Simulated scan of single mutants.
Amino acid sequence: MAASWVTRRLFCSAVAETAAPVKTGRWERLKNSRAGVWFRSMCSDYKEACREVAVGAWERPVRASVYAALLGGVWACFETRPDDASFDEALLERSNRLGLLSAWIRSSASDGHVQTLVKLRNEGRLRHLSLGPLSLVYRADHDPEASLYEARCSDLSPPWRELPGRVLDVGFAGRWWVLDSKMKDYDVNEDEFKHLPEHMQAAAAPGAKEVERNESLHKDSWLPLEMKEEEEEVNAAAGKQDGVVEQEPMKSLEEEQTPAQAEA
């Protein structure tokens, strides 16, 4: 009887230990949760992708270099993309540069483009749009703070298909290309040369010899003047005059003595 009771007791304790829940830590519970399993699978996928990229770059170095150069170029375009503040700065700098020139000297194309942009900026009608590596500046119909019905109604706003016709400048690689192209030869007034023949309206670029000759002449213009030849001529003329002056008294004495000798 005692033996059966001991056996039953041992059996019940073994069953109780088997049915008791196993205590796990917080990290183990988080690791085995749904979010932990998803995170581990994602890390495993990224690890496998990085390993494949490394193996592919080792097997095809040329292709890997081209891809790396493309990615680096795109990243550089993102970093050097100009913003609206840089456009305002460039516009004001070009406007001040044109303001230093007379109206008879500045280019009409450059001045007209800059004045149009300045007018739109003062009216609050310039808009800036970022397109990844590119930046666009386009013209709007109204100021954003205007309270007119046409400016507030979304149904009357211009459609996106009209955006290419409203674009005024394109920013790429740290430059505003349209503004820079319009400012080319801004200090040359093309209207002054319209009456000239076509072959005289455009001047050819000077060659290397002409540039060297002009530079040498410019350097020589800063040197002090040398008056050696003129000084020699002046000294020679002065010497001749002194010789004439010295010989004239002798001739006069001879002339005075000649009549006396004749009477003797």
Rank of each mutant, 00 (worst) to 15 (best):
F172Y: 13
F172V: 08
F172C: 10
A173I: 05
G174L: 03
G174T: 02
R175H: 12
W176D: 01
W177A: 09
W177Q: 14
W177T: 08
W177D: 00
V178L: 11
V178A: 10
V178Q: 13
V178W: 03
L179M: 11
L179A: 08
L179F: 01
D180S: 09
S181N: 07
S181W: 01
S181D: 12
K182T: 02
K182M: 13
K184D: 06
K184R: 14
D185Y: 10
D185W: 08
D185Q: 04
Y186G: 00
Y186T: 02
D187V: 01
D187L: 00
V188L: 13
V188K: 12
N189C: 07
N189M: 04
N189T: 02
E190A: 14
E190M: 08
E190H: 14
D191K: 10
D191R: 13
E192V: 09
F193K: 11
F193L: 05
F193W: 06
K194F: 06
K194S: 06
H195R: 05
H195V: 06
L196H: 06
L196C: 00
L196S: 01
L196T: 04
E198V: 07
E198I: 07
E198D: 14
H199Y: 14
H199M: 11
H199G: 06
H199I: 10
M200G: 03
M200D: 11
M200F: 06
A202D: 03
A202N: 08
A203R: 09
A203C: 09
A204G: 14
A204I: 02
A204T: 11
A204V: 10
A204N: 07
A205F: 04
A205L: 05
P206D: 02
P206N: 05
P206K: 04
P206R: 04
G207N: 13
G207E: 03
A208F: 06
A208E: 15
A208L: 12
A208C: 06
A208I: 12
K209E: 15
K209P: 09
E210W: 03
V211Q: 09
V211K: 14
V211S: 04
V211L: 13
E212H: 13
E212R: 12
N214Y: 12
N214F: 13
N214S: 13
E215I: 05
E215D: 05
E215A: 10
E215C: 07
